[in-house]
Amino acid sequence: MAEPIILFEKVNKWFDGFHVLKDIDLQVAAGERIVICGPSGSGKSTLIRCVNRLEEHQEGRLVVDGVELGDDVKAIEQVRRNVGMVFQQFNLFPHMTVLENLTLAPVYVARKPKAEAEANAMKQLERVRIAEQAHKYPLQLSGGQQQRVAIARALCLTPHIMLFDEPTSALDPEMINEVLEVMIELAGQGMTMVCVTHEMGFAKAVADRVIFMDAGQIVEQAPPEEFFSNPKSDRTKDFLSKILGH
């Protein structure tokens, strides 16, 4: 494997004495698509939130896109510009139009001229097939539309890595597919993706590797065919039987 774009080395994290990440070792190659799954409270969100330093780790080394994450604020801001994130609750800015949501960071962080930022924003909105909503406010859109806007917003900074934290969990069933389609397209374009999701269909379709976490540890990781057909640990088997069902 060439130089990994994300590198966890013996990373540990505690929330006030609660050991939430235990000795995490993980390497993600550029262009790789990772799906992380595991029971609730196992530390999946915490793990990917460490990648753009929404959470800080206390022990071990974490290098993202060539930058080691530590106290250096400038380094953190640089990593955040190169890492896009999509949240379960969309987290669009409700007081700004869709277009303003998309141009905020390019104009104020990347210091692009407004016209250029807007042109690029429209391109990203077309990419998620929602360009006609550019001048609406987020709360005027459906959940699926909002989540696609959130993906477009993250893409506007041309990130090297995209993080997804259960992007379809807050959606009504009939809207899940429109978001997954956009994500699958993105995967096809060679984006490095780390995705926490329980959409096993998505995992089978696009993941290069599926990671199973439990109680703050990476219990098992394998390509999807192997992961689903031949899980090794009992915890994985137990988890899969619960979500694949019955």
Partner: peptide, 11 residues
């Protein structure tokens, strides 16, 4: 989540 989204954008 608003602050997190803004942070994630590097603001």
């Amino acid at each position: 989540g608003q602050v997190e989204a803004a942070s994630a954008l590097g603001l």
